[in-house]
Structures are given as structure tokens and as C-alpha cells.
Design a protein around this nucleic acid. Sequence first.
DNA 1: TGCATTATTGCAACTCAGTTGCGAAAGTAA
DNA 2: TTACTTTCGCAACTGAGTTGCAATAATGCA
Lengths: 128, 128
Amino acid sequence: MGVSRKTKSVSELLGVFEQTDNALSVVELVKQLDQKMNKTTVYRILDRLEDSGELHSFMGKDGLKWYAKCHDCSSSHHADLHPHFQCRDCGKSECLDIEIALPKVSNHRIDTAELLLVGSCQDCLNQQ
Amino acid sequence: MGVSRKTKSVSELLGVFEQTDNALSVVELVKQLDQKMNKTTVYRILDRLEDSGELHSFMGKDGLKWYAKCHDCSSSHHADLHPHFQCRDCGKSECLDIEIALPKVSNHRIDTAELLLVGSCQDCLNQQ
DNA sequence: TGCATTATTGCAACTCAGTTGCGAAAGTAA
DNA sequence: TTACTTTCGCAACTGAGTTGCAATAATGCA
């Protein structure tokens, strides 16, 4: 029954998210967990954690998939509708704690949205 | 001197955009132009047309790159900051003629944004 | 316990969007 | 013409993400 079983692999993957407030790209996760599990396993666990509402995903500027912890989501309802920020200098991404309103578009049914803000993060601004 | 030269290949590629108001994925463009030019050429011309401000690009929900005609852009200034819509049923994408305001985020410099709205288009809503 | 059933994992091989290197062809300028 | 620059085609590559299958681990039930 999904992820509630919480295997060793799932715990190890979630452990990586415990250590940061940033979002994590799949590439980064596969790299960090390389000694502990196969990359196929990483992809599959991420799928399951997204289905169960523990993580959400978004696409980065470069077309890579990123994951971050959900706050008020469940498997039946994804409540998180917030923008994400990606730094064009260091590449890091993070969730922004801001509400975004879905615009009404005539002749379209809008189900969801992804807003990606691109710029420079504090760390990179300071280093210049 | 960039694209102003407008070779046969460039004209043929731009011709595809003349035939539609929708955005076009690179995959679709490569497929449609398969008999007329190499896929590497498609990628390179798209790059140049984006640099010169004739096209702009965005990432689709699935991580594929899409291109659409620019309206008020030049090589020095990309004026188009509008959302894009992608239909989750038929996969088509289009530009939406709506202004989006960039939110201020403390400790971040925001340069640009991509808002992708996902839902169902009129055609797909009608066919259900 | 013991056994059947289901879920999870590792591995290798694959798919496919996008890139790179290089030589040929086409365009430009004198 | 000749020299130079840009564009293009081709083949081979890169790398994120997927798939099939067999092995292992977890669960349920008698």
C-alpha cells in the first residue's frame, strides 16, 4: 500500500530532504544516494512519494525535474500551489512561500500551474 | 551577422510558424521539417531566432522545449512576459495574451519568470 | 511457524531530446 | 578568381529518464 511501508530506501531518501530547505534535483539525489541505492529506485521512490503527497515536483529552467517537501498535501489533494525560484548562477532551487492566483482564461479549464522565477539568490548576489 | 541573412532553411522553419497560432515543440518542428533539413539545423536555427528576438522559448510540462513567435521583442530586449498554456489532453501549447506581474521576493533578484498553466483546451473540452 | 502472494529493489539495456566535432557546401567580400 | 566566414549535414555522442526481468524483502493467511 504505497509508501506507508517506509522501507530502508525510502527513509534514506527522505533523510536527504531533512538536511536542507532547498528543493533537490533528481540528478542531485541520484548522485548523493549512489552508494546506497540504484538510480531506478530513486526515480521510483520519488514517484511514490509524490503520489502520496509527501513530495511535490516541478521542472527547472534546464528541463531537469526537482522535488521538494510538501507541507499541506495528501494523496487526494495537492494543496501546495506556490512558485519556485531557481538561481541562474548556482542553479539551486527553492520553494517560495507565496500564494499565486490562477488567472481565468476564457475557453480553457485551468487545473494547475507552475510558476518558476529565475534570477540570483542572496548567496550569489553577495559573492559578486 | 546572425539571422538577418535569412537562408532557405530559416525561411522554411519560419514558414511552419506562419501556419499556426500555437506554440511548436522542437520535436514537432524536427518531425515536420525532416525532409527539408537536418535536426541539428533545426536546433541551431531556433537558437539564432531566439537570440535575435523573433522567437521565444519555454519548457513544457513534460520537459520538452517549445517555441513561439515573439511580438514586441528584439535581440536586445525580450518584452514578452506572458504565461503559456499546455493542454494535458492533446499536449498542445499556446501563448496567453495576459500580463503577469513578477512578485517581489526578499533576498532575491528576480530577472525573469515562466508561468505554465496546465489544463484542458476548448477542443478537448468539447470532445468529452 | 510455513507457504503463497504482493511489493520493492538492482541491474542492464534501452529510449529519446539535445549536443558536439568535423568536413562539405554556400554565401560574402576583395 | 581567391580568401574568408557562415551555414549545413552527418554521425557519433551525452545524459535524463524508462522498461523488462529476475532476485529479494515484506505481508497475509492458514
